[in-house]
Write a protein that binds this DNA or RNA. Structure first.
Lengths: 247, 247
DNA sequence: TGCCCCTTCTAATCTAGGTGATTGAGAAGC
DNA sequence: GCTTCTCAATCACCTAGATTAGAAGGGGCA
């Protein structure tokens, strides 16, 4: 079932059997994409959206000088450009970090889905708002935390999100971001990202474990340094959707 | 007509007469709120959303130490917490900057609207995604621009958005943000915000003109310093919705 | 085997921005 | 008339992070 992780990670709304299978059946085909490849280009008119089945994808804004700012990291279970459904053109690029498998759904099909299942429509809407909530948290981190805190926050968020889709083994962060990528996400230079990783290592928070992956040694410490409170992910905690939505 | 500015500033989708009046009639009542007052508190279960008719509203995330990070500035025509419809609880606070008038719409009513007019539903969805696009641009600014650039970017964005709802007279920014507010938005200290305003003044970009308002002397310069390209607002330019949506 | 990349890691130097403190203007209260 | 706010404006000093340069290690490939 392709959309199983989407249901786990993103849709906090109860879907009934009919809605689930309608969503699953909306997938036209799956595609494979190589590492570090652009999937959706800023400004291009789009007619499909992609749901990430396997791998890691990145969203980024590039400026004139070729500097890049990451604005999102996507893990399996994320609908990487569902907002493209309502926007028709994106204000940023979407590309792969690793080799990735994506399920393609056409916008026409999404319209049919929403018209037939309004409750599912609201659930899809919710899933795009989750990205906005992550953006806000990222703004907070960039505005209020120092370099080490920003990196810690990003790692803490990724751990939490991976846990929601049951892809975190409690030890290794299975996302091969380079220090350069962390720098592009956190608004710092690669050199300073390296310094920050060193202090995180020296504090015993984590250590590299080959192929760009890191081993988490003290998650509580990482959360504290990143002032991380995962409730904005609406998975658990005070913000989680405990009320059933009006169907 | 209460929702006239919403149509101008936020909904890029063509709405027909029926949809327009359905939206207008969904308003239960309007409320007034005093300056610097909290409207929606983080974490509280909500059943209404508010559309801003007059005044300026702010959204912010506060951390333990009492530090505040602004994540959005809202002008008339914005649906300040429409995302609360799909999320039920907000991950941040919403409050007023000035005295403000808001139109209240219940979530039950919004559900009815969407079920009856799916196309209007997609337009409302789009409007919340516009906030996400602004968040991304804000992330870009915080990550890649220096203090002066961040302030310039914020001012350029506000000008552009005010222009879309025809509230900008070409001279004065009618939003009385304090330097402290700019600091809280841009992730810098008030002292440094002041320094940055001085350099902007010395460059001839703007000057204060009483009651917290600023007079724009050289908009082109402000845009350049803030590396501002307003297409992410989807109002004009390459990203603007030129295709009609499937109804 | 050796070479070339790419990445991590480090050190030395410089600057943007933080910290803390002071001053003055204007408005609100009495 | 006074005090008491708040906010803009500025100074002196200090630190986090940028910049530049380079060394060391591993994988792919001829």
């Amino acid at each position: 079932m392709l959309t199983a992780l989407f249901l786990k990670g993103r849709l906090r709304h109860d879907l009934n059997e009919e809605e689930r299978s309608a969503l699953e059946n909306a997938v036209a085909r799956t595609i494979e994409i190589r590492p570090r490849t652009t999937l959706v280009e800023r400004g291009k008119l789009i007619e499909h959206s992609y749901y990430l089945v396997e791998g890691t994808m990145l969203r980024h804004i590039d400026d004139r000088r070729g500097e890049r700012q990451l604005v999102a990291v996507h893990i399996p279970g994320d609908f990487v450009d569902l907002h493209g459904y309502a926007m028709k053109r994106l204000d940023h690029d979407v590309g792969s970090l690793t080799r990735a498998t994506l399920a393609q759904i056409s916008h026409r099909k999404i319209t049919e889905l929403i018209d037939a299942y309004p409750h599912l429509g609201r659930a899809l809407w919710f899933s795009t708002l989750l990205d906005a909530a992550m953006h806000r948290e990222w703004i907070f981190g960039l505005g209020r935390l120092n370099a080490e805190g920003r990196i810690a926050h990003l790692i803490a968020e990724l751990i939490e999100r991976l846990r929601l889709v049951e892809l975190y083994d409690g030890r290794v962060l299975p996302i091969p971001l380079l220090q350069r990528d962390y720098a592009e996400a956190c608004g710092i230079t690669p050199v300073h990202a390296n310094r920050s990783f060193r202090t995180l290592r020296e504090r015993g928070a984590l250590r590299p474990c080959g192929e760009g992956r890191i081993e988490i040694l003290d998650e509580a410490l990482i959360r504290r340094l990143g002032e991380f409170d995962g409730s904005y992910l609406y998975g658990t905690g005070e913000l989680a959707l405990r009320t059933l939505h009006d169907r």
